[in-house]
Design a protein around this nucleic acid. Structure first.
Length: 396
RNA sequence: GGAGAGAUAGCAAAGUGGUUAAAUGCACCUGACUGUAAAUCAGGCGGCUUAUGCCUUCGGAGGUUCGAAUCCUCCUCUCUCCA
């Protein structure tokens, strides 16, 4: 096992806050595997690189010999976490939650070590609480303290709605920490408040029931990763995300299209590569290495190499991708506008005309200038829209 | 329970009877330049047709008017203040 100092150095990379370092050091000194909690709200079935910042941190803990307690908030998902939300999140049905939780598990183990992970569903204990216990839990916090919280405050000031039940979320999540006897909890900065509540509840519940914690959990907040636009946080709804299940070529391409500034950020939060090394490299080389590293993590070295070769060929040398989807259409001859709309290469017929007018459409490498062009489909035709949409079409 | 404010396109935000398919910014799309980077420039950004129009949009439903996002009524939702 590595020394305390070495462990701390690894753990501290990229974190925003570590509350507190002394406590963490003390826990590490005990020499036992720590129980590192990560709570996930199964409302978004697709894990993206933003989540993987935290997963990566958890993996580091595992590599240091600690255990991850993956708490699936199947119960809390039905409440809806207010964190960072500008409006009330919709509540999910039990079926949706279950399905999402499964997907979550599959994806999480692309990063986490399955053997060092415990999976827990919080309905197992939350659904058993009786009214007395719920009131006991509620009595441990006050409305004004709840309102101190940034995101509630923001919503309050922006005159956005806050539902009462959302107040329950931090308490319930904090209670999870009591139940799973967490030594450490890792989450996004948006989770700081919830995690701190966990600390306090662990203290409050100490001695009660079977809980015997020496020290309440250490809280580690990780930054919210900026999305591919480099400004807003990565999220599915903003469309600026890279999903861990996306094909290698997509991941590679998306990484290559991020800005240089963002690249350094991704290096820091998603890899172990020393940042000095990155600085010394040519930006494009560095970005390619990042793209390779990340594709390799979710797929394989071969997949990464293939994605890189393809990328170079298509975008540097202007060649065609290795694999282009081939579809068959019933007609032998079609107007280009109909064709684009039919194949969804353009959002609408108007959009198709627009793209043609702007010189963004080509058939067999010939730029289409006339939107009345009739495309003969007796042979295979290659349609290209913009720089990255390719499709082979034939009659059949 | 009482008084008031507000709901406009992906988001933010103008517009208070016609010249508004609806300013502006962001996001997004296409082209140029590149390292498919950033920055910049040009264009676009409801739909259907074409270059002439037509149709559908401003929380929902009705109404007034030659004509409404703009006025009236009701409904839904949100917020503020008072209790």
């Amino acid at each position: 096992m590595k020394s305390i100092e070495e462990q701390l150095a690894i753990i501290k990379r990229g974190v925003v806050e570590l509350i507190s370092e002394d406590e963490l050091a003390a826990k590490l000194k005990e020499g036992r595997p720590l129980r590192v909690k990560w709570g996930a709200d199964p409302s978004a079935p697709d894990i993206h690189f933003g989540h993987s910042v935290i997963l990566h941190k958890l993996r580091q803990f595992q590599d240091l010999g600690h255990r991850v307690i993956f708490v699936i908030g199947d119960f809390t998902a039905r409440i809806g976490d207010p964190s960072g939300q500008s409006k009330t999140r919709k509540q999910l049905t039990p079926e949706e939650v279950e399905q999402n939780a499964q997907t979550y598990k599959e994806q999480v183990f692309k990063v986490l070590d399955k053997n060092a992970t415990e999976v827990a569903y919080n309905h197992n204990w939350l659904s058993k609480l009786n009214m007395n216990e719920i009131f006991e839990l509620l009595s441990k916090y006050t409305v004004s303290r709840m309102l101190e919280r940034d995101d509630f405050m923001n919503r309050f000031e922006k005159e956005r709605p806050i539902s009462i039940h959302e107040f329950l979320y931090p308490l319930v999540q904090g209670y999870d920490s009591v139940e799973v006897k967490a030594d450490v909890e890792v989450g996004g900065t948006d989770q700081k408040f919830n995690m701190l509540v966990g600390r306090e509840l662990q203290r409050d519940y100490k001695g009660k029931s079977q809980v015997t914690l020496v020290m309440p959990q250490v809280v580690i907040t990780m930054p919210l990763l900026e999305g591919t636009d480099g400004v807003q946080k990565m999220s599915k709804s903003l469309g600026n995300y890279i999903g861990v299940t996306e094909p290698p070529s997509e991941i590679y391409g998306k990484i290559m299209s991020i800005s240089d500034t963002l690249m350094r950020r991704y290096y820091e939060l998603l890899t172990e590569v020393p940042l000095g090394e990155v600085k010394a490299m040519h930006p494009k080389q560095a970005k390619q290495r990042l793209a390779r590293t990340l594709v390799a993590r979710f797929y394989s070295d071969q997949a990464a190499a293939a994605a890189e070769a393809e990328f170079e060929s298509v975008f540097k040398e202007g060649k065609l991708p290795q694999e282009i989807e081939l579809i068959s259409l019933p007609k032998k001859e079609m107007n280009i506008v109909d064709l684009l709309a039919e194949t969804k290469l353009a959002a609408s017929r108007t959009d198709a005309r627009r793209l043609i007018r702007q010189g963004g459409v080509s058939v067999n490498e010939q730029i289409v200038k006339d939107d009345k062009l009739s495309v003969n489909l007796s042979g295979e035709r290659l349609i290209k829209v913009g720089k990255r949409k390719f499709l082979r079409i034939r009659h059949g």
